[in-house]
Every structure is written in C-alpha cells, then in structure tokens.
Design a protein around this nucleic acid. Structure first.
Length: 576
DNA sequence: GCCGTTTTCGGCCCGACTGTTTTCAGTCG
C-alpha cells in the first residue's frame, strides 16, 4: 500500500467525521496523519512492517493512529472507515465541496431534507425547500445553486504555470492603479505548489476603495464573490477564485507571512508564538497589546528566533527542525542549472532543428544540451533506429565543431520495451554521451511489471537516467503506476540518476519524491523534455519543485559541468 | 486524537465576511 493510498483513507475518515460533527481537533488529527503519511519520503507500509521501528515516532501519530495504520496496511481495510461509510453515504462528501457549504450545513441538509447527493441538493434548492431551513435563507439557497455549477466543474485546481499567467496579468493590471503602492502575490502560488486552487494578492493602497474598484474591472473577472473593507474576492472567467486583501504597510510582512501559509506551517508558528507569550496574526506580532514586528517577514520570523523560510519550504514538514539545528538547506536556484538533458528535435517529434535548439539553449545560459530523440518503438513520431541515430550523432559531431559556447550531447530517449529490455542495442547506446530510458508503452501492465521493466533499464550500464519515471500527468489520470521506492533503491544501487521532468503538466518527481531521492543520495536530473525552443523555459517549474523537496545545488546532477557529469555516469570501458 | 521544561487533563491559530441573525454561527483560508 502506497503512502498516497494510506493518506487518502485517513483523509476520507476526516471528511466523514467532520460531516458527523465530530470534535474538530479529532478531525484535524486525522487530517494531520494523512498529511504526515503523504509527506514521508519512505514507505510507511515498510515502517509499519519493521518491528524495530515505531510509527508513533512520526509527528502527530500516537498509539491509536499507529494501530490504525498497521491494520490498514496489513489487511487492506479499516473497520472504522467501513463503519463510517455505513453511517454516512460517501456521496455526501461531494456536498462539502460546494462553496459555502461546510460540515454543519451539509449535515443539516442530509438529516432534515435527506439530501445525499449533488443531484438531491439541486432538486431541493430548485423546489425552494432549502431556504426555509433554520439558518438558511433565499440568498443562501441561490448561492448554493450557483456553487453547484462550480462544484460540478472538474477539479478546481490549475497548473502552477497557468496560475503564473493569471498572476502576471493581475500584477500588471493592478500596477496601473495609482492608488496601489505595493502589491504582491502570496498563497500556495508563492509556495510553488505544482497546482494552485486560488490566488491571493496583498495590496498596500492609498485608497483601498479605489484599488478594489480597479481590481473589479480586471478584464478576466466573471463575478465579484465578496467585498468588505479589507477583503475582496472575485472569480475569473477561467474559473479561478482570486482574493485581494488590503493591508497597511506596517503589517505587510505579517500579512505576507500569514497569507503565504501553509495553514499547517502557520499553526505551528502561532503555537510557538503562544508558548513565548506572543501572538501572531496578519497584522503583526504582539506582546500583549504592543506590536513588536510586522513590516517584513524577516521581522516576524525573527521574533521567534527563526530564519525567514523560503516560501517553498513552508509546509510544516522538516523546516522547523532544520531551522533549529541550523541546517536549513540553501536551495537550488535556476541560475545553478548548467544544461538540459532531455530534449527533442525535428528528427522525431520536435518542432525545432538541432541547431535551433542549440542556439536557444545557449541564449538561456546553458552550457550543454542533450538531444534525446525517441527510439524506433515510438513509431508515431518516426522514432530513430540504429542507423538513423548514428546519422544524427554524426550530424551533432559536425555541429559541435561549429558551435561556440554550447556543447551538444549525443543522446537518445530509448524506449523501455513492453517485454522488458531497451529499444536499441548496447553497442549503439555505448556510443551515446547521454542515454535517457523511458516508458511510453504498456501502461496497462501491473505496477510490478512496469517497476521491473524500469529496474532492468537501471541495470543497463549505458543508461544514465530514467525519463519521467513516475509517468504522472498532473490534473489527469496517471499514465501508469510504479513502485517509486523500489526504483529509487535500484537507482542508488546502480549509481543512476532520476529525471524530474520539468514540463508544467508532468513534474513527475514531486516534492516528496525529490526529498526521498535526496535522502537516498540519488542525483536528480531536472530536464525540460522540450519539443520546441519555448519548451526550454520550463526549467524553472522543475527547479521550483526541487526547491519544495529541499534540494540544493549539490543534489541536482545538471548543476555540474559536462566533464563532471560524464564522470558521474561512469560508463564501462570509459575510464574516468 | 495528540501532546506535555506550565500540564496525563485541557488545551489545540486566528480573523474576515456573509447571511440570518437582534448578538452570532458557519464557512473560509
């Protein structure tokens, strides 16, 4: 059972308990265990099976939850969850996702109107049975009807890269308002989460009303959801909710800290403040009535004797421990990257010639670029057989003589075949500078089968790294399932690297997988998988995820020079 | 349900906004 699956079970228990009106702190305990398990870099099932180790050593897991995890991984089910499901139909959980409906009201609808599904809810609203309930009214009923449409829309989160476009536009728009003195983006976007649910902006304005009016006329606005003296919420026609909060300059740092989150990070921070006799809110740090900080985030964290954490690390994982031990990692930066190691050209499905790609890579400051076109198994894109790839490499040799300031690497993205084995013979692979091995077919195979194929590829002496190893596609059903723990261990054993595919929709080594690679000492390759020159710009998305995983320059292979990287590959017959 | 250099019981972050309320509960982040 994967950490992800275990976490999902506890998350569902939390939802069901919340619906039943359980003690909110008990609900939080279940949410916490879900998050803790999800964020673990090792397999929690393995920890549970290891007699020498105790699950209750993990943060927020006591005896009861440890027992429940063990039961779950040993039997594949949990009596408590079965009981809860018997009491509450699972379909009611969808109702909790309707904006404006929380556990209390959802339970009231369920008990008084027998509303168990979104369909029931719509019918109840349309026949105006909802507005007569105590605590509800005509406006609430109308709001629910509107919210139903939103809940029905597919997953409400958007890719970070898409969020970035909205953010830039909104910043540009607000920048034109003369009442705006300062504006910044906070929230999960600032933390670099791979997907973003909504956007949060903080504004310091000479005149808040004018700033809010200006916010309301942004061209992408579909509706204004709420507007008060300090906060305004809109929904963009793209579906994204955007909040604007007006703060005073003397509170700007406190507000940035507060609204950047994460929520869990803030809970720990405020708990610590309380223990020191302080109070933190979005206005500042207070000792009694007296404000002692607030203008900058550095001041706020400084009051608690903490460093100003990079936003990417504010997830209530290890950051407080690191800070206390003075071991906060110096995170990787985009400027540390020296080259891109997974790129395509017009020889297969790329849109730019090798020469165009080289020029674009050089322009982006890269010192080397691996051309890794597909091998012949990928017939749809005219994948290269041995003859054509040798021709391509001869072409690259010729280009390298002409090019200045950038080195092209003779690479290939060799397919890991359905039956195992690679799509090109070893004597061809031996002539490559850089071999990426990837799965593109046989996605329907079992997890064990696909894992075995990938591990076999890691055993090949000429393979340097695995391309998009998890096969994950964000906001879509995942392409295939793989045992990443086993793949990581095999990579370590054979001295191989794993690719963090930086395509904004892939980011297939997520932050937790990055942290796992780091803890095992498996070097991560951040590569864009560019099929056009613009694709090379995706590097920053990969770097952002790597930062969230706590990776430093040292942990990432393509911060090295090509000669250094060559030594790391250590191919047979190539004395290093 | 977890947790403890105040505590094994009694806490558990904190405030804004909305709607239905005559003083506040529910929801949200």
């Amino acid at each position: 059972m994967t950490n992800h699956e275990i976490a999902a079970v506890f998350e569902q228990i939390a939802d069901l308990l919340e619906f039943q009106g359980a003690n909110p702190f008990r609900v939080r305990a279940y949410r916490n265990v879900a998050r803790t398990v999800h964020d673990q870099t090792e397999s929690v099932a393995d920890i549970a099976a290891d007699e020498k180790r105790s699950l209750s050593d993990l943060e927020g897991i006591g005896k009861d939850l440890a027992d429940k995890i063990r039961t779950l991984v040993q039997t594949g089910s949990l009596p408590m969850l079965d009981e809860l499901r018997a009491e509450v139909p699972e379909s009611v959980l969808a109702i909790l996702r309707v904006p404006g409906l929380g556990p209390k009201r959802a339970a009231q609808l369920f008990h008084e109107l027998h509303v168990a599904t979104l369909e029931d809810l719509r019918t109840a609203c349309e026949s105006h049975r909802v507005q007569v309930l105590k605590g509800f009214g005509a406006k609430t009923e109308a709001a629910i009807l509107q919210g139903l449409g939103i809940a029905a829309e597919a997953e409400q989160r958007i890719l970070w890269a898409e969020a970035e476009e909205h953010v830039e536009e909104i910043l540009a728009h607000m920048g034109k308002c003369r009442a705006v003195q300062q504006i910044s983006v906070a929230g999960s976007y600032r933390r670099g989460k791979e997907t973003v649910g909504d956007l949060d902006f903080l504004v310091v304005a000479r005149d808040v009303e004018t700033a809010m009016d200006h916010f309301g006329i942004f061209h992408g606005v579909a509706s204004v959801l709420a507007r008060g003296p300090t906060k305004m919420s809109i929904r963009l026609s793209a579906g994204v909710q955007v909040d604007l909060r007006a703060v005073e300059a003397k509170s700007f740092g406190a507000a940035m800290q507060y609204f950047t989150g994460s929520k869990e990070h803030n809970i720990i921070l405020r708990g610590r403040a309380k223990a020191l006799g302080l109070k933190i809110n979005e206005y500042g740090v207070f000792r009694g009535e007296k404000v002692i900080a607030g203008r900058t985030e550095e001041e706020v964290y400084g009051c608690l004797d903490l460093p100003c954490f990079p936003p990417e690390l504010r997830e209530a994982r290890r950051e407080f421990d690191w800070a206390e031990a003075g071991e906060l990692p110096k995170l990787l930066e985009v400027g540390d990257i020296r080259g891109d190691l997974h790129d395509h050209s017009t020889w297969t499905d790329g849109q730019a010639s090798i020469e165009q790609m080289a020029a674009a890579a050089k322009q982006r400051g890269h010192k080397y670029l691996a051309i890794t076109d597909h091998s012949k198994r990928v017939t749809m894109v005219n994948g290269l057989d041995a003859k054509r790839i040798l021709e391509q490499w001869a072409e690259i040799d010729r280009l390298n003589k002409r090019l200045e300031g950038i080195t092209l690497l003779k690479g290939v993205e060799v397919d890991i075949l359905e039956r195992g084995g690679l799509d090109l013979p070893d004597d061809v692979l031996a002539q490559a500078d850089w071999v990426v091995a990837s799965v593109h077919y046989g996605h329907q195979q079992s997890r064990q089968q696909i894992t075995a194929r990938v591990i076999e590829a890691l055993e090949n002496p000429y393979v340097a790294s695995i391309g998009h190893p998890t096969g994950r596609m964000l906001l879509r059903r995942k392409a295939y399932e793989i045992d990443m723990d086993a793949v990581m261990r095999a990579a370590r054993q054979h001295g191989k690297m794993l690719e963090l595919n930086a395509h904004p929709m892939r980011l297939d080594l997520d932050d937790v997988a990055c942290a796992a690679a780091k803890s095992l000492g498996v070097p991560v390759v951040i590569a864009t998988d560019a099929h056009a020159v613009e694709g090379l710009d995706a590097m920053r998305f990969g770097v952002l995820q790597a930062r969230r995983g706590g990776l430093t320059k040292q942990d990432v292979a393509n911060t090295r020079t090509w000669p250094q990287l060559k030594k790391m590959i250590g191919k047979p017959g190539q004395k290093t």
